[in-house]
């Protein structure tokens, strides 16, 4: 497929999300308040614990981790499940399926515009605020490059998780329920609500190999130089885990979608 054509879909997505400028600023502002809440909670927790380092995480490590997890959450959030169920209800999905491009591919690229806007307008400002507040607790170097690569991989993995979940709505006619189950599992097991480093040993052993970790925990660990990502060996194994899940989920998602799309034609007819 011609990359120029794909990028034109991205550009349309950028223009579409820029239409909601005020919404983005509200998001940013709401995020800042949320960050204040996270800050006070963890400050109180660390003050009561009496030690500076818990499970290899200092207070500022935890803060950076959670703040950037929230920012990543905004950036990675896709409403595939909602959009798909709405376009099935209205029948719009037929138009998308008729496009001279594979549906999964088209959907992915039409979201990229929103990702670009969110990255520039919410993630980067948050990142700068964190840099200033923590006075350079984030090491700046090659890890930024690795972080960007890991984030792109996380984006694709996240999209594949969404695309695995969205067709389930076709069978169950339940959007809210499916979506909340997905979101809860992803947020908990990916370390977005509480860093994975705090999990009890046995739970961590299992969670470590699940795909959810590849979405939030791996990019953030790489950024902070945790989980052995400061050595080449550790870095390779983290990227390896991401790549394996990427391939597995893409293949499964494709198969699943191909089955589900037959069901769509029945419903939409």
């Amino acid at each position: 497929m011609n990359p120029k054509r794909l990028l034109s879909i991205t550009r349309a997505g950028i223009m579409e999300s820029l239409h909601f400028r005020l919404g983005i600023f509200v998001t940013l502002f709401a995020n800042l308040i949320y960050l204040v809440l996270v800050y006070y909670l963890w400050k109180a927790i660390y003050d009561s614990s009496g030690t500076d380092v818990v499970n290899g995480m200092t207070f500022s490590d935890t803060m950076i981790y959670l703040i950037l997890a929230t920012a990543l959450f905004n950036f990675l959030e896709m409403f595939v499940v909602w959009d798909m169920s709405r376009s099935i209800q209205s029948g719009k999905i037929v138009l998308d399926l008729l496009k001279p491009m594979r549906f999964r591919k088209y959907t992915f690229w039409s979201y990229t515009g929103n990702h670009v806007v969110q990255f520039v307008l919410t993630f980067i400002p948050t990142f700068i605020v964190v840099m200033i507040v923590t006075r350079g607790a984030i090491p700046l170097g090659l890890n930024l490059v690795w972080f960007l690569i890991a984030t792109v991989l996380a984006l694709i993995i996240n999209y594949n998780i969404e695309m695995m979940v969205a067709p389930i709505c076709l069978f169950t006619e339940s959007t809210w329920g499916i979506n909340i189950v997905k979101e809860t599992i992803v947020l908990l097991l990916s370390g977005a609500s509480i860093p994975l480093a705090f999990f009890p040993e046995k739970a961590r052993m299992i969670v470590q190999y699940l795909p959810f970790r590849a979405v939030y925990d791996i990019p953030l660990s790489i950024l902070l130089g945790k989980s052995g990502s400061d050595t080449w060996q550790g870095l390779v194994s983290l990227f390896g885990l991401q790549l394996i899940w990427l391939v597995v989920l893409t293949v499964c998602g494709n198969l699943f979608w191909n089955c589900a799309v037959k069901k769509v034609t029945v419903n939409g007819g």
Binding site: V54, T172, E173, S174, W176, G177, I178, V181, T184, I194
Partner: peptide, 29 residues
């Protein structure tokens, strides 16, 4: 009916996840 059952299950999941977060927190502090 399916939607009702799944939504109820989802609600229980969110509560459980909140509870798990809480337990993990107290496991450390």
């Amino acid at each position: 009916r399916a939607d009702f059952i799944i939504s109820t299950f989802g609600m229980i999941m969110t509560n459980l996840s909140g509870f798990v977060t809480f337990m993990i927190l107290f496991h450390n502090f």
